[in-house]
Design a protein around this nucleic acid. Structure first.
Lengths: 188, 188
DNA sequence: CGAAAATAGACAGTATACTGTCTAATTTGT
DNA sequence: ACAAATTAGACAGTATACTGTCTATTTTCG
């Protein structure tokens, strides 16, 4: 950290010489290794994810959709009639979560679920008019939200960051338990 | 609603038309806007977060700790006697989640919770011997996990990525609903 | 001092994200 | 053809992460 996360972190590791009352804590710190959690990519990724989710709820406001729901709506619009499993693969969420998500979207009338004609095990998903309307409002806002999050970076940094992020995600796809399989819709 | 996107809802309202595989999907894609979800930072961040969590569970294996639990243990070791609220601020999780997390860690005997002596509303948290042992095993593995995730990037790219990530997280801290307040431990 | 405000924690409720298991429907392999 | 394997979805269970509300305790201040 050392100024990375701000000067107010002295309690965490700096200025050991001026320790007064917190000897126990500081002793622990100096002995072994510093409290370096804040520098680890894992921690930072979790934080950024929290930030993205918050920014989405705030940015979409009364649309009241989550990032995952937005992704699901986008995918259902792109691939009408897609089944739940296919949707899960297309937006990289778990086979189990997709049931909850599509259930919510159906309950709110944003998508329609219909038992498959060809294969009765399937539920085919379609965007409703209401869902399409929500998506039309949500889409431009998504770009605003994104701009807001990326605001601290200049244009070049944004490109670099998103590029490296995409590379990491792509190359680690298999590591995830719900890997992305973008093909998604291979009917027939 | 029927004009622009209406065709996509046909299936929902009755047109039992059997999309002729990829052609139908592709037509939808080309018409309006591409299915650009995969390029958005929000989606990528969610994916990377999933990947980090998976990699942690896999990497820590029988230690059976989550990234958040690891962070909590690290913080409790660094700040023995910290209260739950302070811990929440130190690792940037919600005041409510921290109750669950510290409850689990206590149940597994990794930390001890003791009602505050000075302020009886507080629960003071301490690492147990067992918790310390877990942490000693977990810590080197954390670096392996991290290296594994960052493997697709070379040394320079890693520095750049982590730097930009840290910048985004730091500058958007307030945007999150559980902002990080690294001070954490201001005893007396 | 004593009432009001503030705070810590607990609990109920919701959404994401995973595991594992179960049923129903379909595909397969002999 | 028909039993076995596979698949889609649903459901129960767990962990994270948030909101809101409630109680107990402490602090503030009139």
């Amino acid at each position: 950290m050392r100024g990375k996360h701000g000067a107010q972190t002295d309690g965490a590791q700096g200025g050991a010489r001026r320790a007064r009352g917190k000897d126990a804590a500081r002793a622990r710190l100096d002995r072994d290794e510093p409290f370096d959690l804040y520098k680890t990519p894992g921690f930072l990724v979790r934080r950024l994810h929290q930030i993205v989710v918050s920014a989405c709820y705030e940015g979409w406001g009364d649309l009241d959709i989550s990032p995952v729901q937005y992704g699901a709506l986008m995918a259902v619009r792109a691939f009408p009639g897609i089944d739940q499993r296919g949707l899960a693969r297309a937006i990289a969420i778990d086979r189990s979560s997709i049931g909850t998500v599509s259930g919510q979207l159906e309950r709110r009338g944003l998508i329609a679920r219909r038992t498959g004609t060809r294969d009765k095990r399937n539920k085919e998903l379609f965007l409703t008019a209401k869902g399409a309307a929500v998506l039309r409002r949500a889409h431009p806002l998504a770009w605003e939200i994104q701009d807001r999050i990326l605001a601290p970076l200049d244009a070049r940094e944004r490109r670099v960051f998103v590029g490296l992020l995409a590379k990491l995600v792509e190359r680690n796809n298999a590591l995830s338990r719900a890997p992305l399989e973008p093909t998604g819709f291979e009917a027939d």
